[in-house]
Design a protein around this nucleic acid. Structure first.
Lengths: 338, 338
DNA sequence: CAGAGCCGTCGAAGCGCTTCAACACCGCAT
DNA sequence: ATGCGGTGTTGAAGCGCTTCGACGGCTCTG
């Protein structure tokens, strides 16, 4: 194993000079720098991460806490995780993967040991038990998701309230007067994961303002569950012509069952989905949708974390990404509309 | 920040005693141990990861390289990743998430810097350019997937050859004489990701042995692509009554399109899927399937890595998990069979 | 041409931990 | 009583790096 000292000897300089060449924190003359760089290459030197962390109290690692539940739509999680890893690398950081399983214990372990310089936490609940620990930690934190109280916290999320409003508005504009919301699995609401409730609130408010009736039903992603949900919706509101789906795994069952019931999309019923672009374009009908910008959320989270680390970032900062609705083939004028 | 020395002072012992209490590498009398443990708790001490890594040349971190391609079925990747993280924790390791993007450079960085004690590499290609580096590395490596040459390597994978054979056999047993294989996207084959080719080989061999005709068509996961694939299959082999699907994203389109064409499953055609359990049970028809044991693959990989680290593991070891076929509602006797 | 100031380099002091050799002490057998 | 092995504890030497203060030599200015 090659050490800094060996590089120094090989280049005929002192260890500190090599260190300064590496970090650029002190000016080094061009000839010396080249000599050192040449030695580094020739010896195949790689700085030792542990020694570096010890001496500088910086690990150059970002911790990412992902939930390990499977009732969330996994591809979104994965896309965020990959965006985080990729963006982190471009800033010189590596990513430590923590599962939510350990909960607060994981937070304590990481903040206590200096394993990571900052933490990014996904799938934050409204009243998350990790929050007090995170706020007390030395390390900066960025949340993906929005807890109830954001005082002193840095958060990134899609503006789900606006997303709900946008969906309601789109369907109302098309003349739909009875809208059904196929929501996430009941467990997601019970856990008080903010985004689901926020979406609903946005939907309700805008629907009320526009004089549209709204019916919300949580739903698992299975065919059975969707079958039951659909029956109950049409029993209660036979005139339903608009659907908003927020559970990605429910999309295929929904479209499939509507078709089997002889309801054509978008002629008889319109469907608006809240899901990643890829899902919207690969479904059996190209879906009018509001995209979940997983990639951008991951990227932003890392950039905020890095900004906090390198100084010059406000303590509190809530970044809500504006939703964008893309009209595709699954939504159209309500039946009976001019 | 609390250090070992402070704990030692607080407990009235030397630093080394505290260290030995922590590591258990030397016997410590019960009273002393309790005093030290009490001090640790009272001061809220957490050992510093960097210092520990430097002194012991062990980081207690496992690196996990995941592909960042999206043509693989993401949930399987995620499930493996989560199993790796969870199992690693239970052995006292954390997981560093590396994306395949960096390729060999990431391997060099991690092995060179001692960031991780071992590496687990997913989505290995038959001739993977990272292999030579991994073999030369100080750190042990475990592959999830099977390269062409496994000399000196430790690998874990589902036995895809046996999986293919099992599928062929099941359909043949039911009297099907014309089987179509809906494979992964063409890119997966072009990249020479072993599992797809192995499955095919298993299918072909067993089909041939059983006198069954086999037609293989790669397929993207979209409805358009599946539509084209199906037409071509039935054009070429109108008598096709058995399907094997290996592309998870293609399952819904396949079932949906078969239904639209008026082909009933399993009355007219049987379908066998190679996919995670959850997908098989949540599809519109409960699918006869061979499960992809993502969870077990992740767990085994970590256990092998840990075994190699703590000594007592053979250098070369290929673990092929035996496939299990579960009969559900999507397969039945071929039409015209007694 | 002396002094101030800057640039490039170096030596040394740690960062917080692990681990080895050494030692004090005990009870045991001789 | 003497020596011996075992147990529990300690001091000190690093692990490989960063970083601070210092210093020699240079240019620039008055």
């Amino acid at each position: 194993m090659v050490t800094l000292a060996e590089v120094a000897r090989h280049a005929g300089v002192s260890a500190s000079t090599v260190s300064y060449v590496l970090s650029g924190k002190r000016s080094i003359s061009a000839p010396t720098r080249e000599r050192v760089e040449h030695s580094i290459k020739e010896l195949g030197y790689h700085p030792n991460a542990g020694a570096r962390a010890l001496a500088s109290s910086r690990s150059n690692i970002l911790a990412l806490m992902v939930p390990l539940r499977t009732d969330m739509y996994v591809p979104v999680m994965m896309e965020i995780a990959i965006a985080v890893a990729t963006t982190a690398r471009s800033h010189g950081y590596d990513v430590l993967l923590l599962t939510g399983e350990e909960g607060p214990a994981a937070v304590r372990r990481v903040t206590g040991s200096g394993l990571a310089d900052a933490m990014i936490v996904m799938d934050v609940e409204l009243e998350d038990e990790r929050l007090p620990l995170l706020q007390a930690a030395r390390q900066p934190t960025v949340l993906i998701g929005l807890p109830a109280d954001t005082v002193g916290l840095t958060c990134v999320d899609l503006d789900f309230t606006a997303t709900g409003a946008l969906c309601a508005e789109h369907l109302a504009d098309l003349g739909h007067r009875d809208i059904a919301v196929v929501g996430e699995a009941p467990a997601v609401y019970e856990r008080h994961t903010g985004f689901a409730e926020r979406t609903l609130e946005g939907l309700r408010r805008r629907a009320a303002a526009l004089g549209v009736r709204l019916l919300h039903r949580p739903c698992e992603g299975s065919y059975e569950s969707m079958d039951g949900t659909l029956s109950r919706i049409f029993d209660e509101r036979p005139g339903t012509t608009g659907f908003v789906v927020q559970n990605e795994t429910a999309i295929d069952p929904l479209l499939s069952l509507l078709r089997r019931q002889g309801r054509a999309v978008p002629e008889d019923v319109s469907v608006v989905a809240i899901c990643p672009e890829q899902v919207a374009t690969q479904a059996s009908v190209r879906l009018t949708s509001v995209a979940i910008p997983a990639d951008e959320m991951g990227r932003r989270a890392v950039e905020l974390a890095v900004a906090k680390l390198e100084g010059g970032a406000p303590e509190e900062q809530v970044t809500l990404l504006a939703p964008e609705l893309t009209v595709r083939a699954s939504s159209g004028p309500a039946p009976g509309t001019a």
